[in-house]
């Protein structure tokens, strides 16, 4: 397997790693909600949100450079918005440029929208990276189940997580086989379609085999596990502390 990139660093042992997954899920959700609902002009609030995340990142001992690299996934979407900025005609003009035939002007309101969207998206992504780098996916699912997510979905997700690696390996092998046959030339649409079709049939048959094997071992639609989640004093302290910090930031600034 060549893909340990999923929930990297989640096996660590720090104050943040030891928190209950439910605490982390709810605080992340609250954090994103607070960030999203803050008006764009309140820039001190955003600075405080960033400091909060930075403190938590420091406590969790997840490498900052890794987090920074991962947080760039929003870039394609930011670019999508960025190209629209010149079209915000109303408002005070910040700068006007002539590009070939077009008269393009950048307005303050357009820049404000960009800043608003980028900072909010970036802070939210940072908090999500923190959540998944400090929590194993299986405990995250356990937490989601306790928070009343439908059981079918939790089970589909947990099967998906287990077989994802097997199927990704399958895809890698198919890619290698394809590349070694056509000497790395540009692949054709038809080849990709056939690969996905083969992948579907193989996945389906694997699913049937897994299901039959589980039935043979007495599966009755119920999953039973030994590990229990525990909501401790640490979680209560962390939850109230973080919640208060968010509320104060939202009210004061």
């Amino acid at each position: 397997m060549k893909h340990s990139f999923l929930d990297h660093y989640s096996e660590g042992n720090s104050l943040i790693h030891r928190l209950d997954p439910r605490t982390k899920l709810i605080t992340s959700l609250l954090f994103i909600l607070a960030v999203t609902s803050t008006p764009p002009t309140k820039w001190p609030a955003f600075a405080i949100y960033f400091c909060l995340i930075a403190i938590l990142l420091f406590l969790s001992r997840v490498p900052a450079l890794y987090v920074l690299k991962r947080s760039l996934v929003i870039m394609p979407f930011v670019l999508l918005i960025a190209i629209f900025i010149p079209f915000f005609k109303e408002g005070e003009v910040a700068g006007s440029y002539n590009i070939w035939l077009w008269q393009v002007s950048v307005t303050y309101s357009g820049l404000q929208v960009l800043w608003n969207v980028v900072i909010k998206a970036w802070l939210s992504i940072l908090s999500l990276i923190l959540l998944t780098s400090t929590t194993k996916f299986t405990s995250l699912l356990k937490g989601l189940e306790q928070l009343k997510m439908p059981r079918v979905m939790v089970m589909v997700l947990s099967f998906m997580y287990r077989y994802l690696f097997v199927l990704v390996d399958e895809v890698m092998r198919m890619k290698q086989a394809r590349d070694s046959r056509n000497f790395g030339k540009q692949q054709r649409m038809r080849t990709v379609a056939n690969m996905i079709g083969t992948l579907f049939i193989r996945s389906y048959e694997r699913g049937e085999r897994v299901y039959a094997a589980m039935l043979a071992r007495g599966f009755d639609g119920q999953m039973r596990t030994l590990d229990r989640l525990s909501f401790r004093k640490l979680d209560a302290c962390f939850g109230t502390g973080f919640g208060l910090a968010l509320i104060l930031t939202n009210l004061l600034y």
């Binding site: 099967f159 287990r162 895809v171 692949q187 990709v192 589980m214």
Partner: peptide, 25 residues
Amino acid sequence: LGEKHVPLMGVLAAFIFAAQMLNFP
């Protein structure tokens, strides 16, 4: 379906996930 077909759905969800890794031009 009954909750019994859940393993199949899970593997198919993993299939969609894996299929999204194959880019096309």
